[in-house]
Simulated scan of single mutants.
Amino acid sequence: MGTDVLARPRGAGRAAGAAVLAQWTLACCAVWALLTVLPLHLTQGRHSAGTVAALVTEGVVSLRLMRIVAGPALGRLRPGTAISVALGLGTVAFGGLAATDGHPLALALALPVIGLGFGMNAMALKLIAAAAPAEGRARGFASQAVAVNLGMALGPLAGVAVQQRFGMAAFCASAALVNAMALCLVLVARPPGNRGPTAAGTLRAQWSVLAQDRDLRIPLALTALGFVLYTQLFATLPLYAKEVLGGGRSLGTVFLVNGLLIIALQLPVTLLAGRLRVTPRALCLLGFGCFAAAFACLGTGRSVGWLFTGVVLVTFAEMLLMPALDVLVGSAGPPERHAAYFSFAALATGIGEAVGSFSGVRVANAPGLGVAWLYTGLAVATTVLVLATTAVWLLRRDRR
């Protein structure tokens, strides 16, 4: 069975591709539910604010940075095997938390294990999509984005309901069961992985890859920049709601709209771009253009209507930009280096999120500035970036 079932499902490959996406949705449900339930559980247990902050931060950081650690492991495992190992780690970690009723010490030990499993799963899926023919890669990455958003929409709702009614032990046991079900799907469907393993090598070897491959640097820079903008928006939306709308009553609906639009439109948008033969670079430009328009709406508008218009534009930016960035990263060099490439993409994402959240909240709370000034400045800066990049590409095309 080829490794392109996510992008070109047919026959037995269709069932394997569906199983891979289903297990990813289940894994995302468990992880995003944990991140939502974690502060509730610790607060209800009357733990100190420092303990709550430390464990929540550990959970978020583990989910992102453990992807870098997973890179060398993927160099020794086939994608299908890596997914099975990842789900096994999740099952064991959540089972341990269920046995200890989510004790803080158990959480401190289990969160990196859950993050490693989640990161290994995510990286293996990216390797599967990157191994597809060029015309099918975007579809594979877009399918994964839909699965992530399904997990983000369903997981927290179910997780909070279980934890609030039956307790933390029941929630963790349910999450362990979800991971076990996903593992059974993978073992029965036997997902792709008959190609040789990807040689990611050691962490030191991965850094040497970055030094050698110049084609990788631009996609990594665009990835970091994209997540700076994306994180700045969603980190400051609560402040926007308070400053402009007088409260946070619309925030829940805002995030729901974002998730539902991606679930409904991500694949159609990606397929349409493929039929129109829009290149990944052009999709990146369109995505950053949507960011600029969204920030302009939020910076100048003062109503719920402008808020939702901005969020819809940001959602389209996300749908256009994120799969295109994955395609650029996965197309930057030979397949044996893909694990290293996506490890660095995870690092660039983490850096972008850290810079975006810190700078966004800092500027939004600065005396004399505020959220509206932040969004207006981002609109201007992003517009200048898009226009300058377009001009450079047009000049290069004319010279050819």
Rank of each mutant, 00 (worst) to 15 (best):
L283Y: 00
L256N: 09
L267W: 08
L283A: 08
L285D: 12
L251W: 11
L251Q: 10
T231V: 14
G226R: 05
L267A: 09
L283R: 15
L276H: 08
T279S: 15
I262N: 06
C284E: 10
P268G: 04
F288Y: 04
R277T: 10
G252A: 09
L265R: 09
L283C: 09
K242V: 11
L285R: 13
L229I: 13
C284Q: 08
A282R: 13
L283K: 07
L271M: 12
F255T: 05
F227E: 07
T236W: 00
S250A: 14
K242Q: 14
C284I: 13
G246V: 01
T231F: 13
V228R: 07
G248K: 07
L225C: 06
L272S: 03
G246Q: 00
L237K: 08
L286E: 03
L256C: 12
T270D: 06
L251A: 08
R275I: 02
L239F: 09
R281P: 03
G248E: 13
P238R: 01
L285S: 15
R275T: 04
Y230H: 14
G274V: 08
V228I: 15
G247M: 02
L285F: 09
L251I: 12
R275D: 03
Y240I: 00
L276T: 06
A273D: 06
L286H: 11
R249N: 13
L239S: 07
Y240R: 01
V257N: 02
R281E: 14
R249S: 14
V254T: 12
L239Q: 05
L245M: 07
C284W: 04
V244Y: 04
G247A: 05
A241M: 06
A241F: 03
G226S: 11
N258A: 13
G274L: 08
Q232H: 05
A224L: 15
I262V: 15
L225E: 00
L260C: 03
A235V: 03
L260W: 03
F234M: 00
P268A: 03
G226E: 06
V278E: 08
R281D: 13
L261A: 13
V257M: 04
G252W: 01
